[in-house]
Amino acid sequence: MKKLLLATIMSATFLAAAPVQAEDYVIDTDGAHAFVQFKVSHLGYSWLLGRFNDFEGTFSYDEANPSAAKVNVTIDVASLDSNHAERDKHLRSADFFNVGKYPQAKFESTSYTANGDGTGVLKGNFTLHGTTKPISIDVTEIGAGQDPWGGFRRGFEGAVTITPADFGMDYDLGPASETVEIYLSIEGIRK
């Protein structure tokens, strides 16, 4: 009995002392709990909003070491949806996204700097229209915990402003439309 008690105590001690590892998540696009949306000025008079309906990705996160976070996302650019079929057709054309030649956009993180208050800056390489550039996404952790189906989820939101001309998309819509805001709402299911 003493040996069993000693073994139990030693096992608990080793488990408690074991380093916490990053948890891996798959972005929940099947359940539509993740979004990649965009907003661009329409001639300076209003906002044009849209989204990409098809994308996939993964991320890893360690609460004890947030700087080790990693994110990979691939977007099917042809899934662009601005709620107007003719406009979407034009946006998919060679004038803008040229989805026949550049069917995917990708983001791969290179670093994450936590601010210590649930926010941080995620840096990485963004590939769009065949051009890869570094970008910085301002990130806020939304929360984490058990879901009703026996899984564990973690969610973040982020925003970044890009200049399409930096990615070779130079169709002139006037100075009010030179930049595009991208908003991400990401909920991951722990693997």
Score class of each variant (00 low, 15 high):
Q37A: 09
Q37W: 00
F38Y: 07
K39T: 11
V40G: 03
V40S: 08
S41E: 03
S41H: 01
S41T: 02
S41C: 02
H42P: 09
H42Y: 01
H42D: 04
H42N: 14
L43S: 13
L43F: 13
L43Y: 05
L43Q: 08
Y45G: 01
Y45N: 04
Y45M: 12
Y45A: 10
S46K: 08
S46E: 03
S46G: 00
S46T: 13
W47Q: 12
W47A: 14
L48A: 10
L48D: 01
L48M: 13
G50V: 06
R51L: 14
R51G: 14
F52W: 13
N53A: 09
N53C: 07
D54H: 12
F55E: 02
G57C: 08
T58Q: 12
T58A: 07
T58V: 11
F59V: 05
F59A: 08
S60T: 15
S60Q: 14
S60K: 12
S60L: 09
S60D: 15
Y61T: 06
Y61C: 01
Y61A: 02
D62K: 13
D62H: 06
E63C: 08
A64M: 12
A64Y: 09
A64L: 12
N65P: 02
N65S: 14
S67K: 15
A68R: 10
A68T: 15
A69Y: 03
A69R: 07
V71F: 05
V71R: 06
N72V: 15
V73S: 04
T74F: 05
I75Y: 04
D76F: 03
D76E: 05
V77W: 01
V77I: 12
A78L: 07
A78C: 04
S79L: 07
S79A: 06
D81I: 02
N83A: 11
N83L: 11
H84C: 03
